[in-house]
Design a protein around this nucleic acid. Structure first.
Length: 212
DNA sequence: CGTTCGATGCACT
DNA sequence: GTGCATCGAACGT
């Protein structure tokens, strides 16, 4: 893939207000940025999964609306942060029109900016670069994304102060692979996980990922 | 390389 | 009370 340039602007609402599978694919190569009081950390998105509607048995909206999944039903272009296993936060970008519950889970990033900060947050100074943002729980930890970021508007990046957004820095990714989603017990027949072929930051079994 | 298992908090029924 | 869209340590091959 090409060398990233700096200084993008947040992707517009219209980017997210589309079919979720298209958004999942198009997020590959985009840059997820979180600016906090501790500094700015950013990573290239290399792996995503789509969760689409109440008819998708693996989607958190499958049981219908609840307090917890409410952001899925809201305006596209907002963050949905899911706290799971008592210790991990997962970051999603809400997609499709208001009222239709869908989102893209970001599963892996390659560090681009603030790698020292990301390592500090992970608490593991000796990680290889491709491991810093490998896995959905790990990347949220590295970027400092918590439940405080749930419902954050991803289309706004004010000149200063805390902000969470996704931007295009002109990076072109190579081949894209599609497989079943990881870590779910239902909906495994759907190939709604996509990733950049060859990226060492992609989660899951390395031998499987490299053969796809 | 692979599999198994415990940690840990919260929303939901 | 149950079940997680996870992770990393421990252990087997």
């Amino acid at each position: 893939m090409s060398v990233p340039r700096r200084g993008g602007r947040p992707l517009a609402r219209a980017f997210y207000d589309r079919a979720t599978l298209d958004v999942a694919r198009d997020l590959l190569g985009k840059v997820l940025v979180h600016r906090t009081a501790d500094g700015t950390a950013a990573g290239l998105i290399v792996e995503t999964e789509a969760y689409v509607g109440e008819s998708d048995p693996a989607c958190h909206a499958a049981p219908g609306p609840t307090r917890r999944n409410a952001p899925l039903y809201g305006e596209p272009g907002h963050a949905y942060v899911y706290f799971t296993y008592g210790m991990h936060c997962l970051f999603y970008a809400v997609t499709e029109r208001r009222g239709f519950p869908a989102a893209v889970l970001v599963r892996a990033i390659e560090p681009i900016e603030g790698e020292a900060l990301m390592r500090r947050r992970r608490g593991r100074p000796h990680l290889a670069p491709h491991d810093v943002g490998r896995g959905p729980g790990n990347l949220a930890r590295a970027l400092g994304i918590t439940l405080a970021e749930n419902r954050a508007d991803l289309t706004r990046a004010p000149a200063r102060g805390p902000a969470l957004w996704i931007e295009d820095r002109g990076t072109r990714v190579g081949d894209i692979g599609w497989t079943a989603r990881i870590g779910i017990r239902v909906g495994t027949e759907l190939a709604w996980r996509c990733f950049v072929v060859g990226s060492r930051a992609v989660s899951g079994s390395r031998s499987v990922a490299s053969s796809e």
